[in-house]
Simulated scan of single mutants.
Amino acid sequence: ECVIEDGTIAYKNWVKTGTEVYRQFWIFDVQNPEEVMINSTKLKVKQRGPYTYRVRYLAKENLTQNSDNTISFVQPNGAIFERRLSVGTENDSFTVLNLAVAAAPILYPNSFVQMVLNSFIKKSHSSMFQVRTLKELLWGYKDPFLSLVPYPIDTTVGVFYPYNNTVDGVYKVYNGKDDISKVAIIDTYKDKKSIYAEFEHEVNLKGIPVYRFVLPSKAFASPTVNPDNDCFCTEKIISKNCTSAGVLDISTCKDRKPVYISLPHFLHASPDVPEPIEGLNPNEEEHRTYLDVEPITGFTLQFAKRLQVNILVKPVKKIDTLSKLKRNYLIPILWLNETGTIGDEKAEMFRKQVTGKISLLGLVEMVLLTVGIVTFVASMIAYCVCRSKKVK
């Protein structure tokens, strides 16, 4: 019943999870935009949140059983705002980095092109920073600067644009048919090996013993410490020639846009990474990523995925709003916490069908072992008594 195959209990609960999954956002509201643009001072930010959305409520699609005992699928994206779990509404406004202005000179390094872009930026009254609502920042808005560019480009900008009516994947996971210990483990994501977690300790989750796995600090370490991260070090300046830790360059996954991911508040980062930013308070318990995995079935019964989205901004002489910067800034935009925990009803079913039976099996083993020991001891005593009488 634990194999991910049509007809099993595992398959039914895996295709569409019965657990509610929430994604919380904390936005970094910039407090001193003018000082940064004019004097290149330290960036002061204030975290605001959480703003909560329900996600992963749609069933997996394009399910395909493969010959290597894996199953492939895509996860449809969807987000429903949960006002009762949020500090405000989707119309709350924030002072944040202007995503289009920051990315333009990196995408187009040619000086002449930058001069042309600068004229569009000025004409649209755009700047290094802007005021946007939560809904605009996350899901997209028509950018006034890009709207003036006389080329057929998508003028909508957003951290997670496009999202609704899109899919995530392709995922490829083991179905457990040949090895039940590998069931539900991700083999590849978009044909690439996924990031890993390491065992920390055992946890009791609603009466179910689970193993807690955490995202280790070396997953964000510099290539000098973890050579596996060498492919993430493409920006030699912010990484101090690839000796700094805590940030991964994912620009190649984002059409060369200068997007970098880290743990929230630059947890586990080298001191030089958050140095130009004030208002960050990294905390291991609040900002780490973990998975609670039930060891018999391999199912994740509780998790917290925490990541921060950052954008690189460089001084650019040809663009007025960026010309007075004297340093590079890795500006945090937001961090997210995507969580899910097995519900009480599902937990009760799990205890009855899995852990309860395993506990019963353990009890039967102890009884049989005790009976066996008693029988063995009694037999040895009887043997010794009989032998003693025979000798006499």
Rank of each mutant, 00 (worst) to 15 (best):
I373V: 14
F350H: 04
C384Q: 07
V364K: 02
R351Q: 01
D344W: 09
R351M: 04
M380S: 04
M380H: 00
A378K: 01
I358Y: 08
V354N: 02
S379N: 09
L363H: 13
I373K: 06
L360K: 15
M349W: 12
S388R: 09
I342E: 04
E345D: 15
G343W: 02
I342R: 00
E345K: 14
G343E: 10
R351T: 07
V354Y: 03
R387A: 14
E365G: 15
F376E: 01
S359H: 14
A382D: 06
I381G: 00
L363I: 15
T375N: 01
I358M: 09
L361F: 12
I381K: 00
A378Q: 05
G362N: 11
L363F: 15
G372H: 00
E348K: 13
E345W: 03
I373L: 15
V364M: 10
C386D: 11
E348N: 09
E365F: 05
M349I: 05
L369I: 07
C386G: 07
K352F: 02
E365Q: 11
V371C: 15
K346C: 08
L369N: 07
G343L: 07
R387N: 09
I358P: 01
R351D: 00
E345I: 11
G372D: 03
T355S: 03
T370C: 13
V377R: 02
K346V: 10
A347R: 01
T370I: 10
T370L: 08
L368K: 01
K352D: 15
V374A: 11
V377E: 00
V385F: 05
M366I: 14
L360D: 14
L361W: 14
L369R: 01
G356R: 10
I381W: 00
G343K: 12
